[in-house]
Amino acid sequence: MIEEPAQLTVNKARNRPTAAQIAAFQGVQTSFVADALGGDGALDPAIRPLGEGRDIRCVAAGPALTADAGPADILATYAALHFLSPGDILVVAFGGHQRCAAVGDRVMGMVRNNEAAGFVTDGPVRDYAGIVDVGLPVWCTGLNPASPFSNGPGTVGLPISIGGRQVATGDMICGDRDGVVVVPFDQIDTVIARLAEIHKLEAKLDAEVANGRRHADKVARLIEDGKINYVG
């Protein structure tokens, strides 16, 4: 006889970046963070800012608290509300399920009341107007008015698979209108160090474009070195 699984499994031990590490990501473009990861770290672009950021300013950076709700279920999301710390971003794996909403406006209101910085899921949400009133940054796959179940099983605080990536509690989550980037906990300091150089490089290129730059250096070098094969 197979035993029924526990409805909920919660990992109370968690990594958490320092206040200084969290502060280093505030206001940083996700494109810069992805560059600092060597072009890695972005979640599937199907996970977008709610309403493309028209009615909520979807910009946030904070440590992940993970929940694996599973397809069409919300029990783990309810449980995660008990373990949120101020500034966390609640990241909920919904199994990519699209036939009902992962959350609605009341749950989002409770996430905000726990002083979270944002919410990310690989499912749709519902109650658009209510979520806009809540005002918390949300990244999701769209909208669906149908409700989920609340039966479990589910997990809180354990690694999850979402948007083509593995996300662990304590990883840094950075989101804006371009999407969401995940910085693994053990790479946070390396990424922060690289961000300083990327900011300098981007500022230099911005100034050059503003001053009339018209071409990319790499192609210019290929032309100069005679390494382009012309036809016609």
Rank of each mutant, 00 (worst) to 15 (best):
R57K: 14
Y128F: 15
E115W: 08
G104Y: 07
R126W: 06
G96I: 05
F119T: 00
L65W: 10
G51A: 09
G130C: 12
A64L: 06
A20C: 04
I47A: 11
L75F: 09
R57L: 12
R106F: 14
R112W: 06
G87T: 04
P49C: 04
C140R: 02
R99E: 14
G96C: 08
G130M: 09
L84Q: 02
A69T: 11
P45L: 12
A60F: 14
M108H: 01
T77Y: 05
A64T: 02
A34L: 11
L43V: 11
D35E: 15
R16P: 09
A61D: 06
A61P: 06
L136I: 09
R112E: 14
N113E: 15
D133E: 15
L84N: 00
V59N: 08
T30L: 04
V92N: 07
G53D: 13
G41N: 03
P49V: 05
G51Y: 05
A102E: 05
P124Y: 00
F94H: 13
G123D: 10
D105V: 04
L136P: 03
A102Y: 00
R57P: 03
T18S: 15
A101V: 02
Y78G: 06
Q98G: 14
M110P: 00
V92T: 11
R126F: 02
L43S: 08
R112T: 08
A129V: 07
R126L: 01
T18H: 04
N15I: 03
R16C: 10
A61T: 04
D133K: 13
V132I: 13
F32P: 01
V132A: 08
A60I: 06
I131H: 09
T66L: 08
A60K: 01
D105Q: 09
A79R: 11
A129K: 09
E115H: 11
D44N: 15
V132K: 06
D73C: 03
F25A: 00
A19P: 01
P17W: 04
C58P: 03
G41C: 03
A101I: 03
L84A: 11
V111Q: 04
A36L: 10
V120M: 06
N114I: 00
G53Q: 13
A101E: 07
M110N: 11
T77A: 15
A116R: 00
G109W: 05
D44R: 12
T30G: 15
G135C: 10
A64Y: 12
A129F: 03
R99T: 12
M108F: 04
G135V: 02
V59Q: 13
V91S: 10
D127R: 01
Q29F: 06
A64E: 13
G104F: 03
